[in-house]
Design a protein around this nucleic acid. Structure first.
Length: 424
RNA sequence: GGAGGGGUGGCCGAGUGGUUUAAGGCACUGGUCUUGAAAACCAGCAGGGGCGCAAGUCCCUCGCGGGUUCGAAUCCCGCCCCCUCCGCCA
């Protein structure tokens, strides 16, 4: 959500920022409405002041026994006029808000311009895809051959885009989650949380999922929303709060189920468990002082990278182009893991700096230590990382010629010492 | 789900139609005093917005939204949340 004052102080710059997102200019129209709104407000407040004064006089008059009939009649007229101006101001306010809340975040200067994901820029590669010495198989081939990954059962129970994991693959997914949570809490300073998987409108709005992306979410019959990521409840922890500066940065994490309707992804990644309606994910959220979000973005991304490094999965860091950067983000790094079965780099983590975009929507502020005016917090979120996709990456990168999978050493403690997943 | 009670500033708490511009206290900040500290005393201390170069001034907000009234923290209606008891339940 943008501040109308940002439009007022630099209309050309505001429109230029929109142009990077491929959007038409809006500042002229917004400023006209803003001028009208403020004129209405000024007129309204003048009438309110007179109404208040008159009401006070009536009160004094009544107590002293004077006849207040004429004053009361005047006050009634004033009240009706006030009401009309109130409606006018509210209408204009609403119109401006509707436009502003539909506009995406301003992009960081570092973000490369381009129409879509083809313009993303690979910044760094970690590890090399290994020559396995045989024809690598895709995760679902491996999983189904092991009898531990069952899409037919999931389809029967729930429908397409779900999976049933069984036995050691189920345990491997659980191990991945435990490992990641432990890593981020013990070594990266994040505090573990258990949070609601259903959230209300205000929470979904504050994290910029509503009103624009309602069709990508599942809604419950009582009007709540299933979270598409723990970013939503974790970030909303500061909704409406004024956080003392000394409590910053706040670093919070949670392992949750995530639910996505995947509307608009029909036909994409239909095989396997790459794109599901439900998956689990360890999410990292940082709430920081506005001066600190750029460095926190780097730090958070490194926390996610550490996971893949320890899992011995080759990956690369990509900065998303202007056309691929999400609505609420000013800059996003994706981590793409190498999938030998697909012979492709696929997104496994996404770390975004939302700056004050979400904080404005949810009115999340901090109180500066020096006693100066309140400011909006900066919020960042990143996957640290998605369990389903991590499972895929581990399976495909550590597969053996006989279809078994070697468990990365870092997971052995979480697997009860099991080092290899095979049919036997 | 049913019955009852409640929601006032960072916290406690007064306030059932008009000097309440929300009393008082605690906490916090600054000052006086003191060798220093404590105590005492003095002062400050919510958020948002309009107008204004500024000083300042006015408006809105007592969980949220409507309504009654010249005037609402206070009365009425709806909703949300918390507490107690009952019912159901992992």
């Amino acid at each position: 959500m943008h501040d109308i004052r940002a439009v007022r102080s630099d209309p050309a710059g505001f429109d230029a920022a929109l142009a990077r997102r491929g959007l038409p200019p809006v500042s002229a129209e917004l400023l006209a409405q803003d001028t009208d709104r403020r004129a209405a407000l000024t007129a309204l407040q003048e009438k309110q002041a007179r109404r208040n004064a008159l009401a006070r006089e009536v009160g004094q008059g009544r107590r002293s026994g004077a006849d207040t009939t004429a004053m009361e009649a005047a006050a009634t007229v004033l009240r009706d006029e006030t009401e009309a101006l109130e409606n006018q101001a509210a209408r204009l306010d609403e119109a401006i808000r509707r436009v502003l809340e539909g506009l995406p975040n301003v992009l960081d200067p570092d973000v490369p311009d381009g129409p879509d994901e083809t313009a993303n820029v690979v910044l760094k590669q970690f590890g090399e895809p290994r020559d396995l010495g045989f024809q690598p198989r895709q995760h679902f081939e491996l999983g189904e051959a092991l009898g531990m990954m069952d899409f037919a059962a999931a389809a029967k129970i729930a429908g397409a885009r779900f999976v049933v994991l069984r036995g050691l693959l189920a345990r491997l997914e659980r191990a991945l989650g435990q490992f990641m949570i432990d890593l981020h809490t013990r070594e990266h300073g994040y505090t573990e949380h258990v949070v609601p998987s259903l959230v209300n409108d205000a929470t979904a709005y504050g994290t910029d999922k509503l009103p624009k992306f309602a069709d990508t979410l599942f809604q419950t019959t009582d009007g709540r929303w299933l979270i598409p990521t723990a970013e939503v409840p974790l970030t909303a922890l500061v909704m409406g709060e004024i956080v003392p500066e000394k409590e910053l940065p706040m670093r919070v994490t949670a392992l949750t189920d995530c639910f996505r309707s995947e509307a608009g992804a029909a036909g994409r990644d239909t095989r396997g468990m790459l794109r599901q309606h439900q998956f689990r994910k360890v999410e990292l959220v940082s709430i920081v002082h506005p001066d600190r979000s750029v460095e926190e973005h780097e730090r958070m991304t490194q926390c996610a990278e550490k996971v893949l490094t320890l899992l011995e999965v080759p990956f690369r860091r990509v900065v998303l182009s202007s056309g691929d950067t999400g609505f609420g983000s000013s800059k996003t790094y994706d981590l793409e893991a190498w999938l030998p079965g697909q012979q492709a780099w696929r997104e496994i983590s996404s770390c975004s700096n939302c700056r004050d975009f979400q904080a404005r929507r949810m009115n999340a502020r901090f109180r500066p230590a020096d006693g100066k005016a309140l400011g909006y917090l900066h919020t960042l979120n990143g996957s640290g990382v998605a369990l389903g996709r991590a499972l895929i990456a581990v399976m495909e990168n550590h597969q053996q010629a006989d279809g078994s999978i070697l468990v990365p050493g870092v997971l052995w403690p979480y697997m009860g010492g099991i080092e290899r997943i095979g049919r036997d």
